[in-house]
């Protein structure tokens, strides 16, 4: 547990000192969402209709954008190798780094989402569910993404490759996330999609650290 905390604190401190990660991700999220009214037209009803989907897709892409650097710097400067040799198992290391990544990128997205939802003219019924769904969904995205980030370490054209590998695996989170928000807006019970999102989160929490650690091990060989 001390190893977990040490890595978490180190990553958070690094992120705060270098500083721009959260800001960049949120900036990207905002700009990506703002492009949609410009592309689709400013008609309020149309925007309200597509708002949950647009917000989720933009959040998904923002997470993807930040994932490439999840292990990259530590891999390049060799500290990942030291972490692999140190007592906490690599799975714990992955979990700590993913949590740090989520705190730095996922949480700011969730804070920014309601503001963007207002810009997109989303009905107020969906706000609580949007935040709840993002709270369940974005950690799952970070966890799935960690597997992909570990696999592309040291490859040629890592960023584009990561998108190709990871985006298909994000589809279930996207579907249930949007489903929960749309259900709330439409006045239907959002229980089922939320439970499914929770199930995905639980499953990724159990399986992804293991997969990412396997990916890191073969990258460090």
């Amino acid at each position: 547990m001390t190893g977990f905390r040490a890595i978490l604190e180190r990553d958070l401190r690094l992120a705060l000192r270098q500083g721009m990660d959260s800001v960049m991700v949120v900036m990207f999220f905002v700009i990506a969402v703002v492009l949609f009214p410009l592309g689709v037209g400013p008609e309020p009803n149309t925007l309200a209709r597509i708002a949950p989907g647009v917000l989720w897709v933009a959040a998904l892409l923002s997470v993807l954008l930040s994932l490439e650097r999840l292990f990259h710097n530590d891999f390049e400067d060799g500290s990942l190798e030291l972490m692999a040799l140190s007592p906490p198992s690599l799975e714990i290391v992955v979990l700590a780094k993913v949590l740090a990544h989520w705190l730095v990128t996922g949480l700011p997205l969730i804070i920014a989402a309601p503001v963007l939802a207002i810009l997109m003219n989303m009905p107020a019924d969906g706000f609580a569910l949007l935040i709840l769904a993002l709270l369940l969904g974005t950690p799952a995205l970070s966890l799935i993404g960690a597997v992909g980030a570990a696999l592309v370490l040291g490859s040629r054209r890592g960023g584009v490759l990561l998108a190709l590998l990871i985006l298909p695996l994000f589809i279930p989170v996207l579907i249930f996330g949007v489903g929960a928000v749309e259900a709330a807006i439409g006045g239907f019970p959002a229980r089922a999609p939320l439970l499914l999102l929770g199930a995905i989160f639980a499953a990724t929490l159990a399986l992804c650290p293991w997969g990412a650690a396997a990916g890191l091990r073969q990258a460090l060989e």
Binding site: V147, S155, L165, P168, G211, Q218, A219, E221
Partner: peptide, 13 residues
């Protein structure tokens, strides 16, 4: 490395 990384990906997929 390509073989191993893609094998993990195939199982995840």
């Amino acid at each position: 490395r390509g073989t191993k990384a893609s094998a993990i990906l195939a199982m995840v997929g």
